[in-house]
């Protein structure tokens, strides 16, 4: 499994890339790998106000559907519409295929997330 240094990770296998008060959110390589070929992504509506732990979207393979939870709170500023046409991008490049951008309302939430090393360790323990 791959991780990228500098990103934040959640125990539900989402990654967060922080850019000022904006956060790009996607699912990790580990998550896409265990789902298999991704066939559909349900995106949130822009403008939606989400608390950390709320459902951000749904990622589906042929035989599984997995809710994606936002690890941080904020307002959905942008969604990655490209994934509607090409959901397989998540398989091909999980760390480039963000699902949505949130305008963060509480930067301190980021401190609770894992860094790449911690996340890798967590995945190993989980297995």
């Amino acid at each position: 499994m791959k991780t990228v240094e500098g990103l934040k990770y959640s125990k539900e296998h989402e990654w967060v890339k922080v850019d000022g008060n904006k956060a790009y959110i996607g699912i990790t390589d580990h998550a896409q790998n265990s789902l298999g070929e991704i066939v559909f992504v349900e995106l949130p509506e822009t403008g939606a106000e989400l608390n950390s732990g709320d459902v951000l979207g749904v990622v589906e393979s042929v035989k599984a559907a997995s809710d994606v939870y936002t690890p941080v709170s904020g307002v959905v500023a942008e969604v990655n519409e490209e994934l509607e046409e090409s959901p397989e991008k998540i398989n091909e490049a999980p760390y480039e295929s963000w699902i949505a951008v949130l305008e963060l309302s509480d930067l301190s939430e980021l401190d609770k997330l894992l860094d790449a090393g911690e996340y890798e360790k967590y995945c190993k323990e989980e297995a």
Binding site: E60, K63, A64
Partner: peptide
């Protein structure tokens, strides 16, 4: 489109 269905999505 089986992810809509009960055998995968269960209560959802």
């Amino acid at each position: 489109l089986q992810t809509r269905e009960q055998h995968i999505r269960r209560e959802k």
